[in-house]
Measured scan of single mutants.
Amino acid sequence: AEKTGIVNVSSSLNVREGASTSSKVIGSLSGNTKVTIVGEEGAFYKIEYKGSHGYVAKEYIKDIKDE
């Protein structure tokens, strides 16, 4: 049951290796980017990222929809 969301930041949002603010940053997404959410862990969504997965803070994702 995948969902999509939109990155809701003015600059960019860090994509992390794990569901923690201390996890390594593996990339970033600019505002209004559409993401595919494959799961959630605590305050983070697990998303599809560059052929693999990454984690982003839930508070910066809006317009969550079921695909």
Rank of each mutant, 00 (worst) to 15 (best):
T21C: 07
I6Y: 09
G39Q: 04
K58E: 02
E48V: 14
L13K: 02
I64H: 07
I61K: 01
V7A: 05
G27P: 00
K3C: 05
H53F: 14
V35Q: 01
G31M: 14
D63T: 12
E17S: 11
I64W: 09
T4N: 07
E59G: 07
I37M: 03
A57W: 10
T33F: 06
K3R: 12
G31C: 06
V38P: 00
E17M: 12
G51F: 07
T4A: 06
G39D: 09
E40H: 06
S10T: 11
L13D: 02
A1P: 11
T36N: 10
L29R: 01
E59V: 13
E40Y: 05
K65L: 10
H53M: 09
K34H: 09
V35P: 01
K3Q: 08
I37P: 00
V9Y: 04
Y49G: 01
V25W: 05
A43H: 11
Y60F: 11
V7M: 03
G54Y: 04
V25M: 06
N32I: 05
I64N: 06
F44P: 00
I26Q: 02
V25Y: 04
N14E: 15
K65N: 14
S10Y: 06
V56F: 01
K34P: 08
D63V: 15
N8A: 14
N32V: 05
N8K: 14
T4D: 04
K50A: 12
S30I: 12
E48H: 09
E48C: 08
F44V: 02
L29E: 01
I61P: 01
A57N: 12
E2Q: 13
G5Y: 03
E59D: 10
S11K: 14
S30L: 12
G18Y: 14
F44K: 01
G27S: 02
T21G: 15
N32F: 09
K65G: 08
I61S: 01
A43L: 14
D66E: 12
T36F: 15
I47W: 00
S28W: 11
G27M: 05
K34L: 14
F44G: 01
S23E: 04
I64A: 08
H53D: 05
V35Y: 02
S20A: 08
K46C: 05
F44Q: 02
K65F: 08
V35I: 10
V56R: 00
H53N: 05
E67Q: 15
L29P: 00
G42C: 05
H53W: 10
Y55Q: 00
S23V: 03
E48G: 05
S30C: 07
S30T: 11
K50G: 14
D66S: 14
Y55T: 00
S22L: 11
G51P: 10
A57K: 15
S28C: 06
V38W: 09
S20V: 05
G27T: 02
S23I: 02
D66A: 10
Y55F: 13
E67M: 09
E59Q: 12
S11H: 10
V56C: 03
E67K: 13
S23H: 10
R16A: 04
V9M: 08
K50W: 07
K24H: 08
I6A: 04
K34S: 07
S12W: 10
I61A: 01
A1I: 13
K50D: 10
I37W: 02
E41I: 13
Y49C: 03
Y60A: 13
G39H: 04
S23G: 05
G27W: 05
K65Q: 13
G42K: 06
A1E: 13
S52Y: 09
G39P: 00
V7F: 02
V38Y: 07
G18V: 09
G54C: 03
V25D: 03
S10N: 11
S30G: 15
K62F: 10
E59H: 09
N8S: 12
S30R: 14
G27L: 04
D66M: 08
S20Q: 07
E40A: 07
G31P: 12
A43T: 10
V15E: 00
S12Q: 11
N8Q: 10
S10G: 10
G39S: 08
E48S: 11
V38I: 12
K3H: 08
E2M: 15
G42Q: 06
K65P: 10
V25N: 04
Y60G: 10
I64G: 06
K62E: 09
K3T: 09
Y55C: 00
G51L: 08
V25Q: 04
A1R: 05
E40V: 08
L13G: 03
R16W: 15
V38G: 02
K50L: 14
E41K: 07
E67H: 13
A1D: 10
K65C: 06
K24C: 06
I6R: 10
T36M: 13
S20F: 08
G42N: 09
T21S: 14
K34Q: 12
T33P: 02
G42H: 07
E2Y: 07
L29N: 00
E2V: 13
G54V: 03
V15A: 01
K65I: 13
A1F: 12
K46L: 11
S52A: 15
E40P: 02
I37E: 00
S52Q: 13
S28G: 06
K24L: 09
N8R: 11
V38S: 05
D63A: 11
A57R: 14
I47D: 00
G39Y: 04
G54W: 02
A19T: 07
V9Q: 07
H53S: 07
V56S: 01
D66H: 09
S30W: 14
S23M: 05
G54N: 01
A43E: 13
S28I: 12
Y49E: 01
S11I: 12
V9P: 08
I6C: 08
K24A: 13
T36W: 13
V35M: 02
A43P: 15
E41G: 03
I61C: 02
K65M: 14
E67R: 07
Y60K: 06
V15R: 00
Y45W: 13
S52C: 06
G27A: 04
S20G: 07
V7D: 02
G31F: 13
A57D: 12
I6G: 03
F44C: 04
V35F: 03
K3N: 04
K46Q: 08
E2G: 13
S30M: 15
G27K: 01
A43R: 08
A43M: 14
K65W: 09
V7R: 02
R16Q: 12
K62V: 14
N32Q: 11
E48D: 14
I6E: 04
E41L: 09
I26H: 01
V15S: 01
G5C: 04
V56A: 04
I37L: 04
V15L: 03
K34Y: 09
S22R: 13
Y45A: 02
T21F: 13
G31I: 09
E41N: 09
I64Q: 06
K46W: 07
K46V: 09
K62P: 03
Y49F: 13
N8M: 13
I61M: 05
S52H: 14
I64P: 06
G42V: 03
G27H: 02
G27I: 03
N14D: 13
F44L: 02
I37Q: 00
G5K: 04
V56Y: 00
K24N: 11
I47G: 00
V15Q: 00
I47K: 00
A43S: 12
V25T: 07
E17R: 07
G18S: 12
